[in-house]
Structure formats: C-alpha cells, structure tokens
Design a protein around this nucleic acid. Structure first.
Lengths: 141, 141
DNA sequence: CAGCATCCCGTGCGATACTG
DNA sequence: CAGTATCGCACGGGATGCTG
C-alpha cells in the first residue's frame, strides 16, 4: 500500500528519496484506502462490528481473525486506535486484560466497508471469469 | 464473508517462502481491497467513471490522473482490463490511438467506490483530529 | 495475557530508457 | 502515441523471541 509520506522529515522540507513521497497527501480517498487496504484491517473491523456494542479481548480477536499473527493484530489495532476508529480499554489486573470495541466513527466506517464487502461477494466471481477469459489469450492479431 | 478457511496447514502443497505468498486466495473482500487499494486504481476508475459513457485515451487519462507515470497508468489499466472492469479499444492507425472506458462491471464498482469516497471526504478530518489527540499523548503511566 | 523488538524477504512503485 | 524493460529502494508483513 502507499507508504505514509505524511511524516517524512518533520523539520526540513519534504526530502524525498527515489520514492514519490509527496504525491498527494491530501486526497482523502487515497488515505482511507491506505488504511482499509492493509491486510488485516477490514477483517478486524468486521469482527469488532459483529461483536458491537460489546468489547472483544485481544486473544479473542486473534481467534476470530483467522490467520492473523500477534504482531499484525497488535499493529492493526494500534493503527485503528490512533485513528479513533477503535477504543481500547485496559483492565489493570495482572495479567492485564485489554478490550477493544469500535467507536462511533469505526461503526460508520463499517457501514462503508459493508458496501465494499457486498460488492466483492457479488462480483468477484465475475472478475475471476474475466481473468480466465483474458488469460486464455486468443491470438491478438 | 471475510473469512479465511483453514489457514496454512498445507498438507504438502503450496510450499512458499517465509512470506505467506498466497495466504488467503479465497476471501473476496481482501481480494477486492488488494485491487482498489493499489495506488492509482481508485483515481483511474473515478476519472473513467466521470467520462462515462465516453472513452478516454491513454494520454488524456494520464493528464486527468494527477501524478501518475506512464508505467503505473499502463500497469493499472492492464490490471483493470484483465479484471473486466475496463474495456480497451485500439484504433489501428499509426501512431495507434487506444481508448478506455469502464465496463458495466466497472461502473458497478464505481458505485461502491463512491461510497468509500463519500465516507473519506466526510470523516478523514475526524481521523486527523484523532491522530493529533493521540500523538499529543500525555504520559501513559 | 498482551504486547514490543528483530530479522528478513517479497513486492509496490518511482525513475529512467528504449520501441513499434 | 502508447506502451514495455530494467533498476533500485522502502515498506508491508511473516517468523521468531523476549517481557511486565
């Protein structure tokens, strides 16, 4: 996914590498897609949405997001929390218990994500067929 | 839904590198996000949607998708074409003129993308504020 | 339990150069 | 005009190990 050019060299002027770091940090759509496009975000949001309005603990989340590693779940949740899409609550017991739930903002995002999911479930087979047709390359004279 | 069936417990097949190269080829949502999440796809689809039902030529497309390189536009269009979302028409003149337009499938995707765009334009500022609040992290004792 | 820290490979994509 | 080919780096993210 698109890297985050947002924070590149805070002090100086956008010092760029070969990468086009400053392409369009302003486009909201691209920025949103960069978030929901990361591998585990949509699934995590979905699971949290299904559990709403209840909270879900870390381990339980990992169980419900098939295949996610502790690291990636952690990274994903931290990102979602930072974005205000997820609320994190720590029970100061020992060992600690951490609970997560979608915020209002997160729930509204889920609504949009649901549309994407619906499209995917309805049309991905069409895309698969298109791919097969395309790959069965008849000679393009 | 966004589920991943029996993750990696490949009896013997799919011997891949350390990377879960073909992790979950089954989840439609992830597969769709992998497509619309690529950097230039959403913008390209948007431009083609705005032009619909008319076709747009390669050079004109590049002009309307700010910042895209020839290579990436080419790659993006090839991918969209392979997926059956875009139709490609070549005028066999010399030099050749190539026209692109969204297919019916592409137009239906645009509908879903429009929802994503709407959410982004409506809520990305909230996310920005959440980030600022979060980054102003008072010490978390 | 719920996490960071490390290592490391594969890939997205930008820059640049060449062609029918 | 509309691509294709090559190179290179930064980043996503998987595997593994350590800690309060």
């Amino acid at each position: 996914m698109t890297s985050s050019p947002a924070h590149t060299t805070p002090t100086a002027k956008a010092k760029k590498g070969p990468r086009g770091d400053l392409f369009d940090p302003g486009c909201p759509t691209r920025r949103l897609l960069d978030r929901i496009g990361t591998k585990w975000t949509s699934m995590t949001v979905k699971v949290l949405a299904e559990a709403a309005p209840y909270e879900v603990r870390f381990a339980e989340l990992q169980r419900r997001v098939p295949g996610v590693s502790q690291k990636m779940l952690s990274v994903t949740l931290r990102s979602l929390t930072r974005d205000g899409l997820v609320a994190r609550r720590v029970e100061p017991t020992v060992p600690p218990r951490v609970h997560y739930r979608l915020t209002e903002l997160g729930l509204s995002l889920e609504t949009a994500l649901a549309v994407v999911r619906a499209w995917a479930e309805e049309h991905m087979l069409d895309i698969d067929r298109a791919n097969e047709l395309h790959d069965a390359q008849p000679d393009v004279t």
